[in-house]
């Protein structure tokens, strides 16, 4: 969402930079502070799992729908997890209805990568007829209000929703698949948490607001699980990071991921 060419952005950037030099930010936070995080789970009835995360004014709703269908070709005996992100036009005057753009594709894929790499559930237990029918877990990220840092808010909402999700249980009888009345937890075994930092000149800020994202040079998201393993990284934005800056980001992310995990 960086737009370095826009005159308003350039004025904004000047102001934000001025404030940063004092070690504070426009909203009074220090450089390594998150905004207030509120996580609510079980907010929807029709979805098998749901959660809503408020990160300052950023608001993301996640619905998890679980059904059955074809597995991926390269993993015929494993259940499937899919993330999709929707930037609803009510979330920002800059979001327009229509097919997914780069940013929503990136959001979905970064969240997806974190969940998948951490192997949050044992996908091999979610197969019904290998190669034909497996459980499909759809994680839909629904952005309801945009004020920066959608990745962290969405990743948090996604894992919260998956943790409370109850899947319908199907059984295979003589090659036929039947729906039973039972429901079962997904048995989520890992909690990956994403931490996003942006760089403005040479300063690193965590949890960027919409204004900070607009004027940033580059962005780095580091996703970590509770064993302090990194399970996803994404660099974005039109500038580079020095190797030392990357190390610093990883260090900050380690600390912040543990803090944010407590919010679940």
């Amino acid at each position: 969402m960086s737009s370095r060419h826009n005159i308003v952005s350039r004025l904004k950037r000047k102001k934000i930079k001025e404030v940063i030099t004092s070690g504070k930010r426009m909203d009074g936070r220090s450089l390594e502070d998150y905004r207030e995080i509120v996580v609510k789970t079980g907010v929807l009835e029709k979805a098998e799992g749901s959660a809503e995360v408020l990160l300052g004014n950023t608001r993301v709703l996640v619905g998890v729908k679980i059904g059955i269908g074809h597995p991926f070709e390269d993993t015929p005996d494993k259940g499937v997890l899919m993330c999709n992100a929707e930037f609803t036009p009510i979330a920002s005057p800059n979001f327009e209805p229509g097919p997914p753009r780069e940013q929503s594709i990136e959001l979905a894929r970064v969240v997806d990568r974190g969940l998948r790499s951490a192997e949050i559930v044992d996908f091999s237990k979610l197969s019904l007829i290998p190669g034909k029918q497996v459980y499909l877990i759809h994680v839909d990220l629904y952005v309801l209000n945009y004020d920066g840092n959608l990745i962290d808010a969405s990743a948090l909402a996604a894992i919260a929703a998956l943790k409370v999700a109850k899947r319908p249980v199907y059984k295979v009888e003589e090659g036929e698949i039947k729906l039973t009345k039972r429901k079962q937890s997904l048995k989520v075994r890992k909690t990956p948490v994403a931490v996003t930092l942006v760089k403005i000149d040479d300063t690193l800020l965590v949890d960027p607001s919409a204004d900070e994202e607009e004027v940033m040079d580059a962005r780095l998201t580091v996703t970590l699980d509770e064993d302090e393993n990194v399970c996803a990284i994404q660099k974005s934005g039109s500038e580079g990071f020095t190797p030392d800056e990357i190390k610093k980001c990883i260090k900050i992310a380690l600390e912040k991921a543990a803090e944010n995990r407590q919010k679940l």
Partner: peptide, 11 residues
């Protein structure tokens, strides 16, 4: 001395 692409998946 700048890294301009950095991604990761896996553990």
């Amino acid at each position: 001395g700048k890294v301009t692409l950095l991604q990761m998946d896996g553990i």
